[in-house]
Amino acid sequence: MLECRSLSVVYGKKISALKDVSLKVDQGEIVTVIGANGSGKTTLLKAISGVFRLDEGEVSFEGGALSGVPMHKIARLGIAHVPEGRRIFSRLTVLENLELGAYGQKKAILDKRLEEAYRIFPLLKERASQLGGTLSGGEQQMLAIARALMAEPKLLLLDEPSMGLAPVIVEKIYSTIKNISRQGLTILLVEQNAQISLSIAKRGYVLENGQIALSGLSGELLNNPLVQEAYLG
């Protein structure tokens, strides 16, 4: 479904953020990319959704190349990006945040998706008229995911959904992600928390200094001594 072929992204002509990164995500899979802070995980997702221009390589989605396609069109192709730090529209209400996730859709479709989003996250219904910025971190993460689901994407890009959240909340969010995936949604999940992301992913890649250091099935990675030492502590 998604294929990245030897991606390279260079910041300001000098610092190389991604170097020759190739990865593949198939229909219905959860694939995770783990790595330390600054290893290029966020850059990778941003390169896929069109924030960064690629210096080399190509991203293709359902067979079509994404280079040169503006960000909002990539979103419309069915790639929903839940960015690092959630980036809720803080001055807009929860309901408005959700509505914008389905921007450009007719009212009937919007209402149907809204109902579905509230079914997955009942809490958001209670908070519907509250400003996004007043939600707690965990609630904001739920809203960010719900907003992305409002677009009915084919591929969900998740950037560190566990960041800054209490373990109980992280578990809750991960079980939701797992449930969403069971309904057939393809997910590319970037995480620092290797333990939890490998527990729900089918396959994983390890990113180190902008390069893929290792890849394999989640079980293999979990048992790999290098991964255990560096990421599972």
Partner: peptide
């Protein structure tokens, strides 16, 4: 950027 991610 988030607006673009939302297809706007």
């Amino acid at each position: 950027m988030m607006a673009e991610f939302s297809g706007i």
